[in-house]
Design a protein around this nucleic acid. Structure first.
Ligand SMILES: [Mn+2]
Ligand SMILES: [Mn+2]
Ligand SMILES: [Mn+2]
Ligand SMILES: [Mn+2]
Lengths: 218, 218
DNA sequence: ATATTATTTTAGATGAAACTAAAAATTTAT
DNA sequence: ATAAATTTTTAGTTTCATCTAAAATAATAT
């Protein structure tokens, strides 16, 4: 069985290696986990010993098949617990990440399956991220950043790229949640900012915002 | 904030000091936590430093007011999670202890209160043990061991003294659960064994059994 | 191509939580 | 009241996860 720390590392690798097709660097791993590169090196060596990570000194690391499987399972737990916290206990989507960060480390296979069944086998978490199935399979959905949408394009908000609490609170304040109807009214090529209509209310979004919202075109 | 290990120790002290009115010995503490007396000594010194335990070398330990408060809160979490596992997720009462043993260490004050509300503020866990309230208060209920009951006495099963999984499975097998109607049919003074009627079925209980069942007389 | 800069790894240290073996204190038995 | 047995504490290790500082390697700039 993995320690919480090991699980946090493979989960971080899981996220980081999605974008970067090459090996994940020690520094990016350390940064994501809010620790030091030397600590990340130590852990990569250990995970490599255990066969969970393919790691070449100075070249970065990638999850092995086993490691990927385990990471997907931790992500599954994390996202199922987030659904539970929001749907069952009534937390708002900006309150659940840190709690799920702890709950994901509870080891009890039957618990995960019972929770999944109780929640009705949800396919996405409260931030629109897909929940890996029992076998670690992830069903990605077609989606695009709002920033890539053209004038007059209509779409539905399906997920948040970086669901940090501050951004989620910003959306709360503007009454914007997943499933919102979004229409691009005007595009400012100068700085990439946008005027949009969300559920028939007008908003002005900087490119930071539009680069953090995934939508599905209608 | 306490570590999981510290929480497990104060919880063990919480149980052990209920019966033993004098200081809890290092060896009993170690035995309960399946560890060595030397490890218990180390931890008692640390908890004493932190003001959670009143500890005198060679004389045993008792929780301080602060320590008792914290311990009661861990017990509260443990028992609330047990209720959740049984009532909400459909686990049986012999499957939940080890999982709750992990869940009790999740630190999120709001989570506990939301869980408590979702469950309808239960007062007892699946084994009949009282759930401490927000302030650590425990509402004990009048109860007696089945072994103390007289012939023809009628009672209701209210809790299990030592709710170990094997004993719970034994009760499952005999279809006995909390709330069962129990009537003493015959008492064998020789070895303390008993013939009883539980929900109108006859059973033969050794004194080990009757000393592990708490009932409320009718 | 070499020098400068940045990244990564190693070496050595710390604190938490456990252990074993030995010493000290307490309890029990003669 | 001593001696023997038991319990408890201390001393010294181990493993894990982190850190800082220094050395090694890789990337970048001149
Ligand atoms: Mn985590
Ligand atoms: Mn999420
Ligand atoms: Mn525990
Ligand atoms: Mn219980």
């Amino acid at each position: 069985m993995l320690t919480s720390s090991e699980e946090n590392y493979i989960k971080a690798l899981f996220y980081l290696q999605q974008k970067a097709s090459k090996g994940v660097s020690t520094s990016s791993l350390a940064q994501r986990l809010d620790t030091k590169p030397s600590s990340a090196t130590d852990m990569l060596q250990k995970l490599s010993e255990k066969g969970l990570v393919d790691y070449v000194k100075y070249k970065g690391a990638l999850l092995s098949t086993d490691g990927y499987q385990l990471a997907a399972h931790v992500v599954r737990k994390h996202r199922l617990w987030e659904v539970f916290l929001v749907k069952t206990l009534g937390f708002s989507w900006d309150q659940v990440h840190d709690i799920a960060e702890q709950l994901e480390h509870v080891h009890a296979p039957l618990l995960v399956e019972k929770l999944d069944a109780f929640l009705g086998h949800p396919r996405r978490d409260p931030h629109g991220d897909p929940i890996p199935d029992k076998n670690g399979q992830i069903h990605q959905v077609e989606k695009a950043l709002l920033s890539t949408q053209q004038n007059d394009q209509e779409s539905i908000l399906v997920s948040i790229k970086d669901a940090n609490d501050d951004f989620l609170k910003y959306l709360n304040q503007k009454n914007i949640s997943l499933g919102a109807f979004i229409k691009v009214i005007a595009l400012e090529p100068f700085d990439g900012s946008m005027t949009v209509e969300v559920n028939h209310e007008t908003h002005y979004f900087s490119s930071t915002i539009t680069n953090n919202l995934y939508v599905q075109s209608l």
